[in-house]
Amino acid sequence: MNPLLRAEQAVLGAVLLDPGQLSHLDWLAPDHFYRPVHQALFAALRKLKNDSHPALTAEKSVPLSWVTDAVDEAGLHVRGLTAVYAHTLVSACPRSAHAPVYGRMVLEGAIHRSVAAHAIRLHQAARADALQGGVEGSLHYADVLTGVLDDLARRWGTEPRPVTPATPPATVAAVLPPVRADQTAEDERFLLAVLAERPKAMDKVVGWLRSGDFADPAHGQLYRCLAALHHRGEPIDRITLLWEAQRRGLLTDGTLSGDQLTAICDGVGAGSAEWLGEQILRASVARTAAVSARAVHALAENEALPPGQLINHALHALGPLDEVRTRWQAASGQPAPKPSTADPSPPGPPTAQVRAALTRSAPRRFPGPTEQRGSAPTPASARSPAHGHS
C-alpha cells in the first residue's frame, strides 16, 4: 500500500480515537489529503470540533456519536463513506498520540502534489504565450506558484528562500511551436542586421537585452560580439564584427560561419531595434517560464526531497524567470512591483512558522500502562474498531 495513503488513514483514525488530537493538527487542512473521502471526513471532524461536539469533553471513553456524526457530516459532501470505513481507519492507526507525525506525512505529500500541479499550469501558460507571442499568462502563473510556495513554507514552518540544489534536476530545453520558432528566428536575424547597419541602435537595447534571450545560440553569440564592440567604443561593421567573432573562437568551433555572418550583415538594416528587441524578449520570457516550470516539476516528482528543500529549490528554479521579467518590465516600460510597506519583521523565523514546526515535531510523552489516558483510548483499543467507543 502507498505510504501516503497509510498516513492519511492513520491521522484520521487517530482523530476518531482521540478528538483532542485535532488541537495538534490546526496546520493541516482538508485539501492536504489526496483522497476526496479523506478530505470530506477531516473537514467534518473539524466542523464537529468547531461546533463543540460532546466527545471533546468526554472524560473516559470517546462516545460512538463522534464517529457516526463525523460520517453523517462527511456523507453530505462525498459518496460511499460508511461507518465500516471509519472503523477501518481506526484500525489503521497504530497510536493516536502519533497524529502530528502522521499529519506531517500527509502535509509532505500535499506539498509535492501542489507544487507539481502549479508547475504544470505554469508550463501550459508558457506554451500558450509562446504560441501567441504573449507574456501575461506566464508571469501570472509564476506569481501564483511563488505565492503557493510561500504559503506552503509557512505551513511547513520554514523560511522560504532560494537555495541551489546540490544536483540540479535534469530538464529538457523548451521547444517553441514551429510557427513561432520561425518567426523568432526571423526577428533575431532582422535585429542583428539592424544593429550591424546602425550601431547607434545598440543604445536602445543593450541595457535590457542579453545574449541568452536569443533562441538561436549562434545569434546570441553574435549579439555578444556586437555588445562587446559597443562596450569598448570600437566601430561596428561587417569586418570588425567578423574579427570579434574570430577572436572569441566562434568561427573555429562551428558556432558561426562566415556565410552566416555575411548573410546577416547583408540583410535589410532598416527597422526598429527597440521593437524587435521586445519581440525577442517576449519569446525569451515564455521559454524561460517553460524551462523553470519543468525544473520545478522535476523537483516535485522527487519524493525523497524534503518539503523545505523542495520549496527552496523551486524558488531557485524560478530565479531566471524573475531576472528576465525585470528586464521585460524595463523594456516595455511597465512599473516594477512596489516593495511591501508592511512593518519589518522581527529577527529570526516568524512566530507562526516556529509554532508550526514545533507542533509537528515536538516530542510527546507516552503514558505507561498504568497511567490514565483521560479521553484517549488505551493502546489495545487503538487496534480494534470494536473498542474505544460506547
Rank of each mutant, 00 (worst) to 15 (best):
R365A: 00
A352L: 09
V296C: 03
A362W: 13
A181L: 01
R325K: 10
G13D: 01
P168G: 06
A125S: 07
L321R: 02
P19H: 14
P320Y: 01
A295D: 01
P165V: 08
S114I: 01
L4T: 10
T288F: 02
P307W: 10
R325Y: 13
H316V: 04
V15W: 11
G249F: 03
A173C: 10
H118C: 05
A289V: 04
P100N: 05
G267T: 06
L191F: 04
P3C: 07
P100Q: 05
W27G: 10
V206C: 14
L250K: 12
L56A: 08
I280E: 02
P3M: 04
D69F: 05
F214N: 05
Q124L: 08
P346D: 06
G220C: 09
A352Q: 10
H87C: 07
A293F: 00
L222Y: 07
W27I: 09
R325V: 09
G137V: 09
A86E: 14
A119E: 05
M105C: 15
A196F: 02
K47C: 15
L22P: 14
A245C: 15
S375G: 15
A228G: 06
L22S: 15
V37E: 08
E59T: 13
Y102K: 09
E197T: 13
P217E: 04
P54I: 06
V135S: 14
K49L: 15
Q260Y: 14
P162F: 03
L256Y: 11
H387V: 14
L241K: 03
R79K: 15
D18V: 12
H316F: 05
L89S: 10
K204A: 08
K204M: 07
S390I: 02
V135C: 08
Q39A: 08
L321D: 05
Q21K: 13
A336C: 02
A336R: 05
L241V: 07
P339I: 03
R127C: 13
P367F: 02
A43P: 12
T240E: 00
S65T: 11
D213G: 02
A99L: 02
T326Y: 06
Y34H: 14
G333C: 12
D18K: 04
P162R: 00
A92H: 06
R189Q: 07
R210A: 13
H230P: 07
Q353L: 15
